[in-house]
Design a protein around this nucleic acid. Structure first.
Lengths: 247, 247
DNA sequence: CGGTCACTTGATCGTCTTCAATACCAGTGG
DNA sequence: CCACTGGTATTGAAGACGATCAAGTGACCG
């Protein structure tokens, strides 16, 4: 088990780097928001509440009434579910442009915490509903988001149910190398905003196994570990083979 | 590992029990199809291709071009993903009224096989797209389906990542008791259309562990096992506690 | 009846967990 | 500048849960 104390992780993105209107939001190109045409962007701005969350802050609580949708515009978030005795399963990490809060139920199905400094837009569900009626493209976009997440969830089930610790770490690192924050100067090198405990709870392992397996992957020449929060992939093809269970 | 030989399982529902038009389809009340109003039901019938699949037949192949949507109207289906060496993860079981084939990608993200005799409607994706433009309610319905599946997938991640074998079986049995085919005469008694191998690959376990754990749950008084394909729950509340990790 | 196949049960093994100690890193204050 | 502190990460040794290997049981069917 892992102690979930909030801790200062390296800030990867400046949370104050973008203006507070939808028109020049740097997350908009990557998010469902761009289904609203430029001309009507004021309607979006009107109902968006820009919010900041410090590292370790829980801003969605599993079981609470699902009153809002969220759109991440800076930082990284972990979504998770807990068992009564504290066992935790992280269902995913969300970064810039990600949309949270989809649920038919009237309560949230998971909790969400800021890993580093996070900025997000809150939208009242009721107001979004009226927006959806006016912009069918947005509804289509939401369906696309949900479908994509569903595919990712199925991949994760395969990982959790059938892959070895080594394969899980390989899969995780390849995923991060694709969608993580890359280092400008070196390809295949990226930052890990989340802790070993987060990684463990995402992969269904323990901290110790994550640490040991990373060390092993390094000594086997697959990766380098410049610091605890940075990874460089030495052999992308070989690591990908590992990740897909070819080895 | 499990040998995936097609095998004759008890047929739970008569696949020929319903008429071949959407108007009197017994799956329609439970499916996305009822977003199309009665008056226009002919449009739906026009593009629906009713198909049957014998036990063990694969009718969706992971990686194939995603040309159709599917709607199950009789029988039970297993969806799964494979690793190159044959390890299998079943991502879910689908019964009457379930909708399959959601994906943004142009290829299927999973395979689907008939467990017993299955009847389903095939819809060309292209034709459904035009239908969706005319019936926004159907799009909303699809979003609801996707959201529901997403929540289920997150629950399954928690199960696969953090629950013990005993808790997994308890969760599975409670799920089946809710959505499975109930015996008419006895409450808390239901049929299991899937084999032990299917259950194992769904829960991230082996056949042997599934069998042993079921035996243990029986000897502990939680359940009865009238036959290999039938389960009766003796202590629903206690089993539910187990399933949610309270014990 | 004999054969097949799914399921059950038993014995042993291995991967990952648990428990425990140590190393590391950043921040703080002497 | 360096010792001290709190927290994270790494490493080591022992243990457990589920996997694997193997044999036995039972149901269905030709």
């Amino acid at each position: 088990m892992y102690a979930y104390a909030p801790s200062a992780r390296p800030v990867v993105l400046d949370p104050h780097g973008a203006a507070n209107t939808c028109a020049n939001c740097d997350a908009r190109p990557h998010s469902v928001c761009n289904a609203v045409p430029d001309a009507d962007i004021a309607r979006l701005t009107a109902i968006a509440v820009v919010t900041h969350a410090e590292p370790g802050t829980t801003f969605i609580q599993e079981g609470d009434p699902a009153s809002h949708f969220f759109n991440i515009s800076a930082g990284t978030v972990r979504m998770y579910k807990l068992l009564p005795d504290g066992r935790r399963q992280i269902t995913g990490f969300s970064g810039v442009g990600h949309f949270l809060g989809l649920a038919v139920s009237d309560t949230y199905a998971f909790s969400a915490e800021a890993i580093d400094h996070v900025r997000f837009c809150k939208f009242s569900r009721a107001r979004v509903r009226t927006l959806l009626d006016d912009y069918p493209a947005m509804e289509k976009r939401l369906l696309a988001v949900a479908s994509t997440e569903l595919v990712a969830a199925q991949d994760q089930m395969l990982l959790l149910g059938r892959k070895t610790a080594r394969e899980r770490l390989a899969s995780f690192l390849m995923l991060q190398s694709r969608q993580g924050v890359m280092c400008q100067s070196y390809r295949h090198r990226f930052a890990l905003p989340m802790s070993r405990g987060d990684i463990a709870d995402y992969l269904g392992l323990t901290i110790e196994t994550v640490s040991r397996t990373l060390t092993k992957l390094r000594s086997d020449g697959f990766i380098e570990i410049p610091s605890a929060t940075e990874i460089a992939i030495r052999a992308p093809a070989a690591l990908e083979s590992l990740a897909t269970g070819m080895a």
